Amino acid sequence: MFKRLMMVALLVIAPLSAATAADQTNPYKLMDEAAQKTFDRLKNEQPQIRANPDYLRTIVDQELLPYVQVKYAGALVLGQYYKSATPAQREAYFAAFREYLKQAYGQALAMYHGQTYQIAPEQPLGDKTIVPIRVTIIDPNGRPPVRLDFQWRKNSQTGNWQAYDMIAEGVSMITTKQNEWGTLLRTKGIDGLTAQLKSISQQKITLEEKK
């Protein structure tokens, strides 16, 4: 169930391209415009997507990853294993993690069937560096609404905000991946996880038929 919630949630996290980005210092504006741009692209490019579902990787690479804190999220997933990894191991892992996100997020976007969304009203940021933004996803086919909290983090150097995690039903996506990959990290280390991520990233994206 959580895996499905995570995939549905990713439908609204794909941010804007650099040329049309919203105010990078306001995570609420980023979330709002990102959702609108993403849904528009999914709707307008269905012919290309249906002809070649792996085209979704391109959308992810162009529109999402430049505005997601990939390395920060990847380091959180590694936890204690990050500090013990060599620079070469980290570089290989982050490259594999990025390719994994292209496949995983692309597969999530393949679930698009006309969903709509509501974003919580903007709250004062103050001096906060981590801000959760509640998004409610509404399914046109009558499924119950899904309420999610996207975690946005302020870059201490640039002042810009980027998304790095999502919490559904009190469970963090980062925590879920830590639990899912924990045994592999304990037995085969970061190299074993890197190899698995490379394998997963090679899987073809498949479209979910409308139910």
Rank of each mutant, 00 (worst) to 15 (best):
P27H: 05
D149E: 09
E209C: 11
Q69F: 01
M6W: 03
T129K: 10
E209K: 13
T129V: 09
I138K: 12
R134A: 00
P47V: 12
L101C: 15
I13T: 04
Q89E: 12
A34S: 09
G192T: 15
K29Q: 13
M166Q: 04
A110H: 15
A73N: 02
E99I: 10
D23Y: 11
W152G: 04
Q89P: 05
R57C: 14
N44K: 15
Y112F: 02
M31F: 05
T175Y: 12
Y93L: 05
I138S: 09
A110V: 03
L197Y: 15
P132M: 10
T183P: 05
V135S: 02
A95H: 10
A85D: 03
P145W: 05
E122Y: 09
D165C: 09
D40F: 06
I13W: 14
V8P: 01
N52Q: 12
Q107Y: 07
T38M: 14
L197G: 05
Q178P: 11
T20S: 11
H113G: 11
K37C: 06
T86C: 09
G170V: 02
T86V: 08
P145L: 05
W181G: 15
A104Y: 02
T129F: 06
R90H: 08
G74D: 03
F94Y: 09
E63L: 01
Y105Q: 02
L101A: 15
E99K: 06
E45Q: 09
R153F: 00
R90D: 04
V146P: 02
L148G: 01
Y72R: 01
I174H: 11
N52P: 00
Q36K: 09
T183M: 08
Q46D: 04
L30F: 06
L101D: 06
Q151S: 05
V70C: 14
S84R: 10
Y117R: 03
L109G: 13
E169W: 04
T25W: 10
Y117Q: 02
R186S: 11
P144M: 06
R50E: 06
L109Q: 04
A163C: 02
Q46L: 09
Q62R: 09
A168C: 01
D23E: 15
A95M: 14
Q123S: 13
Q107P: 05
P132S: 04
A85Q: 14
K83W: 01
I200M: 10
T20H: 08
I205W: 14
L64H: 01
A88I: 10
Q162R: 11
K37E: 08
M6D: 01
P124L: 12
K188N: 10
A19G: 08
D191G: 07
Q69G: 12
T194F: 07
N52S: 07
A195W: 11
E33Q: 05
D191Y: 09
R147Y: 00
E45G: 06
M31Q: 07
P124I: 12
T58C: 07
L184H: 07
N160Y: 13
P140G: 11
T129A: 00
E208V: 08
K29I: 14
G159F: 10
Q62D: 10
A92H: 13
K188T: 09
L109I: 01
W181D: 15
A51P: 08
Y81K: 10
V135C: 03
D149L: 03
S199E: 08
T183E: 09
A14D: 05
R134K: 02
M173E: 04
R41Y: 02
Q36I: 13
D54L: 10
A195T: 13
Q103T: 13
E45F: 06
Y72L: 01
K37P: 12
L109R: 11
W161T: 03
Q157G: 07
A85K: 04
R41I: 02
P140E: 15
L148D: 01
M1H: 01
Q89A: 13
A108S: 00
M166Y: 06
Y28K: 09
Q48W: 10
I49P: 04
E169D: 04
Q118M: 14
P145H: 04
P145D: 06
A51F: 09
T25A: 08
Q157H: 08
N179W: 06
A85T: 10
L78I: 03
T136Y: 11
V146M: 03
P124V: 13
S156F: 03
A108C: 03
M111F: 08
Q89G: 09
A95E: 09
E180D: 04
P144W: 07
Q203I: 09
T116G: 15
L185K: 07
K198V: 09
D23Q: 07
A85C: 13
V68Y: 03
A35G: 10
I174Y: 13
M7N: 01
Y105F: 03
Q24F: 08
N155G: 02
L5H: 01
A104G: 14
K43H: 06
I137C: 00
D139E: 15
G114R: 07
M7F: 13
I200W: 12
R143P: 04
I130Q: 01
V12D: 00
R90A: 04
Y164D: 01
D54E: 10
N52R: 12
G142T: 09
R143D: 01
N160R: 12
F2N: 01
A14S: 14
L65K: 05
V77G: 15
K3W: 02
Y72Q: 00
A9E: 00
H113W: 14
R134M: 03
T176S: 00
Q202N: 10
M6N: 00
A51K: 13
T136E: 15
S199G: 13
S84A: 13
L56S: 11
E99H: 14
L64G: 01
P132V: 01
Q162K: 06
A21T: 10
I133D: 01
T25S: 09
T20C: 15
D54W: 06
A92T: 15
A22V: 12
S84I: 10
N155L: 01
R90Y: 04
M173T: 00
K198N: 08
Q107C: 11
A14C: 14
Q69S: 14
M6V: 05
P144K: 09
P121A: 00
F2V: 07
P47S: 11
D61R: 04
N26H: 07
A9S: 05
T58L: 07
W152E: 03
A85H: 06
T129W: 11
A19M: 03
E63S: 08
D61K: 06
K3V: 02
G170R: 01
A110M: 14
Q46W: 03
L109Y: 15
L42A: 06
W161K: 04
Q69K: 04
A96K: 05
K83R: 09
Y55W: 06
L5F: 12
L30N: 05
G74W: 00
S156C: 02
P132D: 04
R57H: 14
S17Q: 15
Q157C: 06
A120L: 13
V171K: 06
P87Q: 09
V68P: 00
V135N: 04
K29Y: 12
P132T: 08
R186M: 01
L42H: 05
Y112E: 05
T187V: 05
I138R: 15
A168V: 03
A195E: 14
L125K: 10
Y164T: 03
A120S: 14
R98N: 13
R186Q: 00
K71I: 02
F39C: 02
A75F: 00
I137S: 00
A110S: 11
A95L: 11
A195F: 14
P53Y: 15
G74C: 05
L11M: 09
L185G: 06
V70W: 05
P145V: 07
A21L: 08
I119Q: 05
K43E: 07
T129C: 05
E169C: 11
G182L: 09
R153L: 01
L65F: 15
L101E: 06
G74I: 00
I190D: 03
P53K: 11
I167V: 06
A168H: 14
K128T: 12
K37D: 06
Y164V: 02
N44Q: 10
W152C: 01
K210T: 12
V68Q: 15
G142S: 11
V8I: 15
P144Y: 07
E45D: 08
D191E: 05
A110R: 11
E45C: 10
V8S: 04
I205Y: 14
S201P: 15
F2K: 03
A108F: 12
N44H: 15
R98I: 05
G74L: 00
R134D: 01
R4T: 15
Q115G: 04
P15N: 15
K204E: 10
L56Y: 08
K3H: 00
G79Y: 00
K29W: 12
A104I: 05
T175H: 08
L101Q: 14
L16I: 12
E63F: 01
T38N: 11
A96W: 07
E208N: 10
R186P: 00
Q46Y: 08
R143W: 03
T38H: 03
I205S: 04
K188R: 10
V135M: 06
R98A: 12
G170I: 01
D54F: 10
T136K: 14
Q24M: 10
I205C: 06
N141V: 07
K128E: 09
G159P: 14
R153M: 01
T158I: 09
W161G: 05
T86D: 10
F94R: 12
K128C: 08
A35T: 12
T129L: 11
S17E: 12
V146N: 06
